[in-house]
Design a protein around this nucleic acid. Structure first.
Lengths: 357, 357
DNA sequence: TCCCTGCGGGAAAGGGCTTTCTCTGCGGTA
DNA sequence: TACCGCAGAGAAAGCCCTTTCCCGCAGGGA
């Protein structure tokens, strides 16, 4: 690789001058030298060594981002928002996928710190895991102590700038909607129970049911991976245990799509026999058939706000922004089927023995 | 930020020793000093400056990847494959989204070169654009001249290691399938015509129709963005111009989903009134209703192979691997409707005046 | 004519780390 | 006892770039 001194030598100038020409320094350079340097750059196909540059100017301009998985639509949307603001500010993003592995998350904090990022954004659910939380906070505190800014999207344990989707209210809205449609036997297809997102959404849902005099027993909740296959599998387990279910709440849209697949495989019509409500309102939600009724989260906006928070200067910190959830009515949630309404009404407590698994 | 010499000073050793302990150098260090260094690291929350490290060891370990958009399922799958092999080999990936902007693509080649990546992988369609192609090849050649390895996924113009999906055969398979089902009035929802992927798939499709004595006039092709909305829009234009269409080939699955949406909006039953065939077999293809008949490309494998190619040592280069396309029959392609078959049979050339737009 | 100013350029000091080379001191052999 | 060899530690030379500081020179004002 050609270096700056190669360029300088070839142009017959000092490295200092070459550097000034290449970086468009404010210090004036005569046109003749400028030409010579530019010519040398072109001839040698010179590209500055980014590491050397980053080391020399102790600038700190890039922003680090840790998400569970960028290719998951939930995070893809958030990332879009992050990216937009970052690009506007001329910042580069370093994005890392933790794949929901706490250890990897910790490692990435170090990695990004080592890469001298100006700020760090953690997107995704928090964990119900004291030890991890403490470790993470220590690392973040160490980073902040050296002037780094940190913002989190949707996790609770970090005291600092945060953007929080209102998961609880979202769960509540889903529950209220289904109660309003007359459903009593409601099953939940939930993500991993260690995630705060899961428990928050569940809490809101439970509150809605309780307010309506319904209950949400444990056997009507199934925990699985927060993806399509997890949703399909959890739905199968749910239906095996309780065939009388008239509605299913999936705690994210990917799981909802899995639920729809299982329902279809079992010949259960949606929403005539079984209603489904998702969560997040990913783009694909409107394209499945029937179109998915779900709870919308302003994902792009969440990303944009987090980035603004972290790049914002002077603003008093910490700030916590709660972004509202909103019910989007489409075609997967309908009134409880009449036949069921009759029997279910007279059988508040479905027989336990029905489980086939 | 604490530096290595801070650690060394605190531990009462030289920076050299501290470095050796921290990096697990092969050079032996007494346990006592080792302990002291480790303690200092913990107390100072020391994290090595990645740029300084990368500069000092002229190692070149990371691999650069340029894709159109990681959050597009097509590239998400490819990236999964890339990532798998890279992780196995202990390599870090730097992934850049070009968003199908040739200039940005060029910039990223420089950027990654500047970051001293050991290899470069370009994934995504090539462009029918001589000037761009030449520039890109110059930059890649310059990179390769300094020992960098380059592999491309699915683009034609670069002479070197390449993994190529068999787009042409894929298009052919889609065409043959529809012809076999009796369709004559087949419309195409195509991506941007500047992309080689578009033209390759189209060429295969055209060949299949020609072999069956059908034709593919320009008015039955609509070019749009390679995404869901592009597909929806192109389908609308297609139907407006030619309401007698009995089948639509979308040149990727995202567009197919858009096509399905437009068809549904217009009350056209799939596949009873209109058949649809997609391309790529993205994960979502099996979850739409009806499930999408499409042409499968081994996306993850494509990524994995490209990474192996580029990290492979000793193997004679350049190598070109063509990966086969395969038709996946699901539920969106059915026989041509009987009524249409009768009239269409007697009207080989639909009237031009039918267009409503 | 002399001095001051300011412009254009180069020398050199980092920036934080790795790694080679050098040095010290110890144990072992002749 | 004298010497050799080696283990373990440090000194210092880079890696490549940016940027401050300094210097020489030309032009303008006194």
């Amino acid at each position: 690789m050609a270096t700056l001194s190669d360029v300088a030598r070839r142009a017959g100038v000092s490295p200092a001058t070459a550097s000034r020409v290449i970086n468009g320094s404010s210090k004036p350079v005569t046109d003749e030298l400028r030409e010579r340097v530019l010519a040398a750059v072109a001839e040698l196909q010179y590209v500055p060594n980014a590491h050397a540059q980053l080391l020399a100017r102790s600038h700190r301009s890039a922003v680090g981002v840790i998400v569970h998985d960028v290719s998951d639509p939930y995070f893809a949307e958030i990332t879009r928002g992050l990216q937009r603001v970052a690009t506007d500010q001329g910042r580069l993003l370093m994005i890392c996928n933790s794949y929901r592995d706490p250890d990897r998350e910790l490692e990435y904090v170090e990695l990004l710190r080592g890469h001298q990022v100006a700020a760090l954004i953690l997107a995704g659910s928090g964990y119900h895991d004291e030890a991890f939380t403490r470790q993470l906070n220590e690392k973040l505190a160490a980073y902040e102590a050296t002037g780094g800014r940190v913002a989190v999207i949707g996790r609770h344990e970090h005291s600092g700038d945060a953007v929080m989707p209102d998961n609880r209210t979202g769960g509540y809205l889903a529950g209220r909607e289904l109660c309003g449609l007359g459903h009593r036997a409601i099953g939940v297809v939930a993500g991993p129970r260690i995630l705060t997102t899961t428990t928050d959404r569940l809490a809101g849902l439970r509150q809605a049911l309780t307010e309506q005099g319904r209950e949400l027993p444990d056997r009507r909740i199934r925990y699985a991976e927060f993806d399509r296959d997890g949703g399909a599998e959890a739905t199968a387990r749910l239906l095996d245990a309780d065939p009388e279910l008239t509605a299913i709440v999936a705690l994210n849209d990917s799981m909802a799509i899995g639920a729809l697949a299982t329902l279809r495989a079992r010949g259960l019509a949606v929403p005539q026999q079984t209603s489904v409500v998702g969560f997040d309102d990913m783009p694909i939600a409107r394209d499945v058939t029937p179109a998915l009724t779900t709870v919308r989260l302003p994902l792009v906006d969440m990303g944009a706000r987090a980035m603004s928070l972290v790049l914002g200067v002077g603003a008093p910190t910490p700030r916590v922004e709660v972004l509202p959830a909103e019910l989007v009515r489409r075609d997967t949630a309908g009134p409880v089927p009449p036949s069921v309404r009759a029997t279910a009404g007279s059988t508040p407590h479905p027989r336990r023995g029905d489980a086939t698994t």
